[in-house]
Amino acid sequence: MIRALILPLSLSVGLTIGLMNAVAAETSPAALAEAAAARLDQAGQTLAAAEKARDRVKALTETLRAFEDGLEAMREGLRRVSLREAQLTRELDARETEISQLLGVLQSIAATPDPVLAMHPDGPTDTARSGMLLADVTPALTDQAQALRSKLQEVAILRSLQQSAVDTLAQGLDGVQQARTDLSQAISDRTNLPKRFTEDPLKTALLVASAETLTGFASGLSEIAEGEAPGSLPDISHRKGKLPLPVQGTILRRAGEADAAGITRPGLILATRPRALVTTPTAATLRYLGPLLDYGNVVILEPQAGLLLVLAGLDVVYGSAGQVLPSGSPIGLMGGEEAEIGTILSQAGEGAGTEASETLYIEVRENNAPVDPVAWFATGKDK
């Protein structure tokens, strides 16, 4: 029994996703990763079954979302793993002398045969006292040894998990890039979306060139449409305050809040990761897409008559003006470059997540007057 207290110095540990649960007592990265993996699996099945271009776009959109979720879960899990490993390493380093003494005692006890360990040279009385002392000391030594073993095992697990993350990240980054490429091609091949109007390129160019404000541009949107079908999409006022944000991100500035230069805008700004996918928050007519004023690439959606959703700051835009897009349709990608594996690992080691370096501006206009986007989007109270 006493010999069983000796710690194994070399640990062989199998990695499973359940180990992530021991790393974080808060929201589990394992739960996020499992959910992302399930979505990715479902997306793969949908993609394999898709035959029409429209179905393929939908499947690829879901696949890309699943990749984004999976990579986010991996980054967060790696960050927590790195922090926990660093904490344990500091604790073990700080207790190095104490641990060395503990190991010395345990090794000395283990090297002594049990009969000799129980005997005392001064006779039976002192032998009995020695046995009583040993009985008192052994549980404390056992507890210390078990605690040390647990920490050493956890360090080994965390280090193995960090090592395996390199391959997982590489596969995920390759997968997300391939999904983006496939999605772009599928959108180019798509021909079966309904169209409410045909865009006049000359009128559009003139409107863009002459526009001095977003208000002026929005008021002239009807001029670029030819052969517009009457009517509108169904009223969505019942969804007010419930629309999902068009991209995964966090609110950087709300409507009316000044930026570092003191400039205020009537919309909100989301901080997103590089190359994040932007989708329609609801079914809408694509009124305009392309560069506009100082907003960068802009997409203007019309969910219903008199309501415009303006999304500005995209790097890549998808579709053509006049198309009626279903809810959740891809309309573009944010700019920037995906962080390299070395950068992600370095940031995780410092306890930081990869930077949300891109910004998407969202403005909502009712009857060509800006309103607070929070009135329409489900932004959450804590954002």
Rank of each mutant, 00 (worst) to 15 (best):
G70M: 02
G70P: 01
G70T: 00
L71N: 02
E72Q: 07
E72K: 10
E72G: 05
A73P: 04
A73T: 07
A73I: 03
M74V: 13
M74P: 01
R75Y: 07
L78D: 02
R79V: 07
R80S: 05
R80D: 08
R80F: 00
R80Q: 12
V81T: 14
V81Q: 02
V81L: 06
S82M: 02
S82C: 05
L83W: 06
L83C: 09
R84P: 02
E85Q: 10
E85Y: 04
E85H: 09
A86H: 03
A86C: 00
A86Y: 01
Q87S: 13
L88G: 04
L88A: 06
T89I: 12
R90I: 11
R90A: 12
R90T: 08
L92Q: 03
L92A: 04
L92W: 01
D93Q: 10
D93S: 11
D93M: 09
D93N: 13
A94K: 07
R95Q: 05
R95E: 04
E96H: 05
E96N: 07
T97C: 02
T97Q: 09
E98K: 08
E98T: 09
E98L: 10
E98S: 10
I99E: 01
I99A: 00
I99G: 02
S100V: 13
Q101L: 02
Q101I: 03
Q101K: 01
Q101M: 07
L102D: 00
L103S: 08
G104E: 15
V105P: 01
V105N: 06
V105R: 03
V105D: 08
V105M: 13
L106V: 08
L106Q: 06
L106I: 10
L106W: 02
Q107V: 03
Q107A: 09
S108E: 15
S108N: 15
S108A: 15
S108W: 12
I109D: 02
I109Y: 04
I109M: 07
A110S: 12
A110G: 11
A111D: 14
A111S: 15
A111G: 14
T112M: 01
P113T: 07
P113C: 05
P113R: 07
D114C: 04
P115M: 10
P115V: 14
V116W: 05
L117S: 03
L117T: 04
L117I: 07
L117K: 04
A118F: 09
A118Y: 09
A118N: 11
A118G: 08
A118L: 14
M119T: 15
M119N: 14
M119Y: 14
M119I: 14
H120K: 10
H120L: 11
P121T: 13
P121I: 15
P121F: 12
D122P: 11
G123D: 13
T125D: 14
T125W: 13
T125C: 12
T125E: 15
T125K: 14
T125R: 15
D126Q: 11
D126N: 11
D126E: 11
T127F: 03
T127V: 08
T127H: 05
A128I: 10
A128H: 06
